[in-house]
C-alpha cells in the first residue's frame, strides 16, 4: 500500500513537472518578448526592462530560467494580467469560486440522474426502458453543448420567458462577496429579503447547470450501464440469485457496488469533460467564471493569464485523477489483489 502511494505520488510529481515545463515554454512560444510575456507588463522603459530581465532570470540559461519560473509559481506569483494589470493569482481566485460552484451543482445533477438511470438501464438490459434511456442518452450525447445552451435560451428565456438568460444574479441585488460562493454569500449577508435573492440566484443557476450537466450525465449513464451489464453477466450474480436474496438486496448489495467500483477511475474523464463544458457554458451564459476569463484572456491576447491558467487547471486535473486512483485503490479490494500480484 505504501509503495503504491509512493508510486502514485511520484507519477503526480513527474507529470506536474512536465506540465510546468510546457507552461514555461509557452512564455517563449507566445508571440512577443518573453520578458513581457512572463511579467505581464507591456510598456516598460529600458531600465525597467533590464531589471525585470534580471529578476525573472531571463538573461540566464533556459534551465535557470525554468527554475526561477518554478520558484515564482510556487510562491503564487504568475505576473500581472495584460488587461487589468492586477496580479493573476488574485484574478484567478476571484473567478474560481463561480466556476467551482457551477461545476459542483452540475456534478451533483449528473450523479443524481446518471447513476440511477444507468443502473436501471443496465439491469433492464434490452427491455423497453433500457432502450428509451439509452437512446435518449445517445441523442443527448451528440448535441453540441453550445447548441444546447442556445436552445435553452431560445425556449426558456425568449419563448417562455421563464428563466433569466445570463449572469449569476439580477443587477438589483448586490451581495457582498465573502467566500465567492454565491449561495453561501447570500446566507452570510445581511440583506433584508433573503428569500427573494435566493430564488433569483437559483433561477439564474438552472439553465447553466442543466446545460453543463447534459454531457457528463450521458457519459455517466453510458459507463454505468455497460458496467452493470458486465456485472450482471458474472457468475457471482447468478450464484447470489440462487441464494434466496430478493432482487432489491441483490441490486443494492452486489450489483451497484461491483458496477460502481471499476468506473471510479473513469471519473477523471468526467472532470475533463466538465472543465471543457464549463468553459463554453460560461461564455454562453456570461457566467463570471474561469472559462469566461480564459476566453476573455485569449481575445485580449493576455499571455500571462493563459499561461497561468494552463498550469493551474492542468495541475488540478492531474491531482484529481491521482486522488481518484488512490481512492479507487482504497475501496476496491480487487485492485489491491492486482497490485499485490504484480509487485
Amino acid at each position: 500500500m505504501f509503495v503504491y502511494l509512493l508510486r502514485r505520488i511520484n507519477l503526480l510529481f513527474t507529470t506536474l513537472i512536465v506540465i510546468s515545463v510546457m507552461s514555461f515554454s509557452l512564455g517563449h512560444l507566445f508571440p512577443g518578448d518573453p520578458v513581457i510575456n512572463f511579467s505581464g507588463k507591456p510598456s516598460l522603459t529600458y531600465s525597467e526592462y533590464q531589471d525585470l530581465s534580471q529578476t525573472l532570470a531571463l538573461d540566464k540559461s533556459y534551465f535557470e530560467q525554468y527554475l526561477a519560473y518554478l520558484k515564482r509559481s510556487f510562491n503564487g506569483d504568475f505576473g500581472v494580467s495584460f488587461s487589468s494589470q492586477k496580479p493573476i493569482l488574485d484574478e484567478f481566485l476571484r473567478v474560481l469560486p463561480a466556476s467551482i460552484e457551477l461545476s459542483l451543482y452540475a456534478l451533483l445533477v449528473t450523479l443524481v440522474f446518471g447513476l440511477p438511470l444507468g443502473l436501471l438501464a443496465g439491469i433492464k438490459n434490452n427491455r423497453l426502458i433500457d432502450r428509451i434511456i439509452f437512446s435518449v442518452a445517445t441523442i443527448l450525447n451528440s448535441i453540441p453543448i453550445f447548441w444546447v445552451g442556445l436552445l435553452f435560451i431560445l425556449i426558456f428565456t425568449l419563448n417562455m420567458n421563464w428563466l433569466p438568460m445570463s449572469g449569476r444574479l439580477t443587477l438589483l441585488y448586490e451581495v457582498p462577496s465573502i467566500t465567492g460562493f454565491l449561495l453561501v454569500d447570500i446566507a452570510l449577508s445581511d440583506l433584508a429579503n433573503k428569500s427573494y435573492v435566493y430564488t433569483d440566484a437559483l433561477r439564474h443557476l438552472i439553465l447553466p447547470t442543466a446545460t453543463l450537466a447534459v454531457l457528463p450525465a450521458t457519459l455517466v449513464i453510458g459507463m454505468m450501464r455497460s458496467s452493470v451489464i458486465h456485472v450482471m453477466g458474472m457468475p457471482y450474480i447468478k450464484a447470489a440469485q440462487t441464494k434466496g436474496l430478493t432482487s432489491w438486496q441483490l441490486i443494492t448489495r452486489h450489483v451497484f457496488r461491483n458496477a460502481l467500483l471499476p468506473i471510479i477511475p473513469q471519473f477523471g474523464l468526467l472532470f475533463n469533460t466538465l472543465v471543457t463544458s464549463t468553459m463554453i457554458t460560461e461564455v454562453i451564459f456570461s457566467w463570471p467564471g474561469i472559462g469566461n476569463w480564459i476566453i476573455e484572456a485569449i481575445y485580449q491576447r493576455d499571455f500571462p493569464a493563459i499561461q497561468a491558467s494552463l498550469l493551474i487547471v492542468a495541475s488540478m486535473m492531474i491531482s484529481i485523477n491521482v486522488l481518484l486512483e488512490i481512492a479507487h485503490m482504497m475501496v476496491n479490494p480487487l485492485m489491491r489483489k492486482e497490485f499485490n500480484a504484480t509487485k
Binding site: I19, M22, L29, I306, L310, V313, A314, I318
Partner: peptide, 24 residues
C-alpha cells in the same frame, strides 16, 4: 508515458485554445 499522461490530463478544449493562442 509521463509525457502522455501530462498531455491527456489537460482538457482537450483548453489545450486547443492554448495552441490557438500561440499560433493565432
Amino acid at each position: 508515458n509521463h509525457l502522455l499522461d501530462a498531455i491527456l490530463s489537460i482538457p482537450s478544449l483548453l489545450l486547443a485554445v492554448v495552441i490557438v493562442a500561440i499560433l493565432g
